[in-house]
Write a protein that binds this DNA or RNA. Structure first.
Lengths: 196, 196
DNA sequence: CAAAAAACATACTAATTGGTATGTTTTTAT
DNA sequence: ATAAAAACATACCAATTAGTATGTTTTTTG
């Protein structure tokens, strides 16, 4: 990677960590600078302002990392329902970027930003729609291949699964524990069975 | 109500509105003051600092309003599962304090505060545990009365329902629409049926 | 009614914020 | 090699923040 691209990437990854931990507004540019050893001049050379950096972070860090995992894991098992369970299990238990006590980075940003920042809203909507579409496509394919009851509404089920995932992360964050994750996964498993 | 108690209540209700809409850190004390016509002297007479006000707000506005609804609606129908559905329906669709585009106030505060503020965490944990316990008790009673499958784990189911509710609110907030609420409610209904 | 306490009002402060102005250094193209 | 552009560095600024110091007014109590 070119040196300049490295600086940019350095800013984004550190900013992601800080914002994931403390929120967007509570992560000051000065914070990011002292954590990256980058100066303010460099920062404002790469980004017009804080907002633009935040949106770049969504598209280049969050989207890159998580959408890749969605695509990969949704095809990892023999049946679509197993794959979906595997994905949620991965996100809740295994992923090393995500931390129990910090919740879901996308959900955090939705909470903080959507009421007042439209560019953020759009970027996040994009991200989430991609995830929902991937889930929906997996379910539809499952219907076609005879793994899933044709009566179910794939879009609704996708919504329900993502909602549950987010809520579980919220509860895990509150209790600073993976325990709610396991109870959620247990219930998810029985719910997924009803879709067969 | 005494005039002084009225001032205090005035601060809390307005602060709740502002914090629900913009978050805790983004709602400045000056904001609250201009919106309430209360002066800084009065504010700091009633509250030691901003944190103490925020916690009072959880216990006196959120808890008072929502726990009351939980208790009331969880006994409103003939069967526990109908009552639970009725409660979630009320929270998502009917409650006038809660707004689609602003999500769930408790969830918002959990996201923003739990990673860095212990007193807030404790107050929120309290609140949420009360809700989980009310749900669990309803389910247990349902088992006893023969309305619900005795095999189910009431605590897990309560967790699953609350998680889904929170996630649905998050999605509604993102899409600024009640549509995710309806799809969630539809799925919730079929899920609840499997508990009979 | 008067003294004391409760309730409120005003003016300030030190720290932090996002952003800019104005540089210097490094890289690239000819 | 050298001029031009890209990449970075430093010093500043105006606005906002939570909180305090020092009052005045209102209410309560003896």
């Amino acid at each position: 990677m070119k040196k300049s691209a490295l600086t940019r990437h350095n800013i984004l990854t550190k900013a992601f960590e800080l914002i994931y931990a403390n929120g967007y507004r509570a992560s000051s540019i000065d914070d990011i600078l002292t954590n990256t050893q980058v100066t303010k001049g460099a920062f404002y050379y790469h980004f017009k302002n804080k907002e633009e950096m935040g949106i770049a972070l969504i598209n280049e860090i969050l989207k890159t990392h998580l959408s890749k995992k969605f695509i990969e894991l949704l095809e990892s098992k023999d049946t679509p329902l197993e794959s979906i369970y595997c994905l949620i299990h991965y996100l809740l238990i295994e992923d090393r970027l995500l931390k129990t006590e910090l919740g879901c980075p996308a959900s955090n940003l939705i909470q903080e930003m959507t009421p007042w920042n439209t560019p953020f809203s759009n970027a996040l909507n994009n991200l989430v729609n991609e995830w929902l579409n991937l889930l929906e496509a997996t379910l539809e394919k499952g219907k076609k291949d005879g793994f899933i009851n044709k009566e179910i509404n794939s879009k609704s089920v996708a919504t329900f699964i993502l909602s549950g995932y987010w809520g579980a992360r919220n509860l895990g964050k509150l209790e600073k524990s993976k325990k709610p994750y396991n109870t959620f996964l247990e219930q998810l498993k029985t719910y997924l069975k009803t879709l067969e």
